[in-house]
Design a protein around this nucleic acid. Structure first.
Lengths: 150, 150
DNA sequence: AGGTGTAAAGGTCAAAGAAAGTCAAACTTT
DNA sequence: AAAGTTTGACTTTCTTTGACCTTTACACCT
């Protein structure tokens, strides 16, 4: 077993009953006698969104890293979007269709769908088409990832 | 938790029922055993206008710092946003604050605020900071313009 | 009454410190 | 060889501290 696995296990244990864990990168690194960036490595390979984890953090004095777990099974449609559709380019009409679906599935309400539609419009993004479609996919992906957190 | 957060909480508690709080910088600094300018730091990062706080102060003997909470006026707020804030760069924390205000003013509902927050996050935009802040301003502006139209 | 000196506030800014983030090179395992 | 790990140098963000500045009240002269 390598350090990454050990650290992963350690963090998983912290999840005991709760769905949230707070930790200090430096302390952890010190405890396991490894480079601080090793912690980032563990987080980015083991505590990913597809696995149902969300990460928040803050730098500077009193900084922290906070992990939380979400239930993925309830969100098949979103999951599918995240794994397939949103990794590629996303044109504006398609994005509107996705938003409509999300709204009909009651995953988001209609105001949210509309607002996001404006946010993803060519006018809002204002950039060359090729980049624009990538950008649009990325924004929507991010919104969804966070929405499933509930 | 760092001192700044603790001081912030302390001040927020002073707001108990009233909408005004009066305090002495030196006394506070003394109480928390920190540099007086730390108080200014807390005020300028936590009790900002976008967050709905107003700060008055006076130097010299018998000087003071007075904080008050203002409630935002719907039209003024949007107007100010469109005319000033959203023409310039817009950093992420400020955008979150704006969304919170818009939600409190019932201009958008809380789900929309949250979704837009994710859409405007550095991760969603994924571009160099300088461009990112322009982009963020532009997207939010576009959303806002269309929302008040509708 | 009117200057004026002084102490008592608060303000500003930049440097130092304290986290966390990134990335690529070196190393290991498969 | 490819994939996965480990490490460390460098970056970015947020906080803390301290030196120096400005404003105000008040007492003391004349």
């Amino acid at each position: 077993m390598n350090i990454s696995d050990i650290i992963e296990e350690f963090i998983l244990e912290q999840f005991d009953n709760s769905n949230d864990v707070s930790l200090s990168r430096n302390e952890l690194a010190n405890y396991f006698n490894c480079a601080p960036s090793q912690i980032n490595y563990v987080l980015s390979t083991r505590f990913t969104t597809p696995k149902g984890f969300l990460i928040e953090s803050r730098r500077g004095g009193g900084g922290y890293i906070r992990l939380s777990r979400v239930d993925l099974n309830k969100n098949d449609y979103i999951n599918n979007l995240l794994c397939h559709v949103l990794n590629a380019d996303l044109d504006y009409p398609t994005s509107l269709q996705i938003l409509k679906n999300l709204s009909e599935l009651n995953i988001i309400n209609s105001q949210t769908a509309q607002a996001l539609g404006y946010a993803l419009s060519p006018k809002a993004l204002a950039m060359p088409v090729k980049i624009e479609n990538k950008q649009r996919a990325n924004i929507l992906k991010n919104v969804l990832i966070n929405i499933i957190k509930g």
